[in-house]
Nucleic acid binder design. Sequence first.
DNA 1: GTGTATTTGTTCGTATGTATT
DNA 2: TAATACATACGAACAAATACA
Lengths: 248, 248
Amino acid sequence: MTSAQRKTPVWQAIAQTLTEDIAKGRYGPGDKLPTEAELSARFGVNRHTVRHALKDMAENGLVHARRGAGVFVAQTPTDYPIGRRVRFHANLRKSGRLPGKEILSCETRASDAREADALGLEQGKAVHVCNGLSLGDGQPLALFRSVFPAERFPTLLDEIRAQHSVTAALRACGVADYTRASTRLTAKRADPTQALHLRLREGDPILRSVGINVDPQNHPVEYGTTWFAGDRVTLTLTDDVTGGSEVL
Amino acid sequence: MTSAQRKTPVWQAIAQTLTEDIAKGRYGPGDKLPTEAELSARFGVNRHTVRHALKDMAENGLVHARRGAGVFVAQTPTDYPIGRRVRFHANLRKSGRLPGKEILSCETRASDAREADALGLEQGKAVHVCNGLSLGDGQPLALFRSVFPAERFPTLLDEIRAQHSVTAALRACGVADYTRASTRLTAKRADPTQALHLRLREGDPILRSVGINVDPQNHPVEYGTTWFAGDRVTLTLTDDVTGGSEVL
DNA sequence: GTGTATTTGTTCGTATGTATT
DNA sequence: TAATACATACGAACAAATACA
């Protein structure tokens, strides 16, 4: 056995076995894998060989090790398609997750320079601001803040509170459709507040998306920022710029 | 003075003043602001009040503080348009930065499962792998790893080393054009190696982009992963799917 | 490498004004 | 009016990271 020529290295075989174990659900997301010692006993190899396999899996984002704690199966990142027509709930439903939304706070206040610029308003004009949390299977996936021109949509906040959906609320305010005109993405660290809401540790990486949604007449209707939990969401850029009207 | 009714808090006025100073170029990107002590003397307020202003500016990404060192004007994040036709150098030139590229290592080896799947190969088929660093004005912006099918492009690595451009190298290998078929984005923490190359601190947020480029016949020609320094790059999603042929 | 000064980060405490209950 | 909560502003001291001789 050990002397026979082998095509694949032992560590790769181990990594593949563990990967299959995870795929089969033997170890679920968030579960702790057996210790390196237990695994090296199970596979009859040196601990370093197991470590090599685990390192490979960690680099591929399949597991992540915490010194002193163990090796844990990574949360399966939720695929989140992003494009000109992005509707959160529809996406999640498609990926078989139970979507949810929690409105954290709403207010109407004067706009700052950035918000006014993005929405094409004079600075100081009133805006509706709505902070919330997007959930998938009960787990927080993203924080969002949406800023709307208050003058154009006087009743929007009530609609959002009632409808529990931005798309529906905008439609009730006369915006039949909207598309994403621009999106800017950066990786940031979670600040304490974000970490609390997203149930991350402070400093954990988050993906910040800043976007402007416009109505068919190309007028900005929403200036939105979304902070995605880095290890729980993967944004996928789709080509479907001409995509169908998947409206929730 | 102090008793007069004031509409805006002191800390906001200070933040605005400093923001204007930065906008006017009094403090340029990367410059160190005066110390909190100096600023509190300049504005005649308590250090906490200055800190409040600086904290606000930091939250808006305008400055960032380093304990023991000072508060520095943020490098204007390099806008990095991402879409079906993304050419790194052309983008940087457009934004007025001197682009650069450094090839860190190249090798030809057997593909793993993921690479083979992405490139449409049988697992184990040989691939060229090229690791490198993308620079803007001499500063590292991103790490990249490109994986190519070796059988189809036997001379590609030599071309890359000679041409110093993936686009040119692929063209020399008979690929007149290619477009981005899929992109997946996540926020991760920089591991020690990445932090070293990108001159970040370990654990700093990075934006990982995994993409597949295909030729006009829709055959995958490159499976690429790019790790962007989170605070130095902003990905912008553009609508220009029909964009012109900006080829380097 | 060591020690020291500098600079930001954090945590106490104090006081005031304003808005809400 | 009283009680409460919250944001603003100031003061002092210490901790932690950095820069530099």
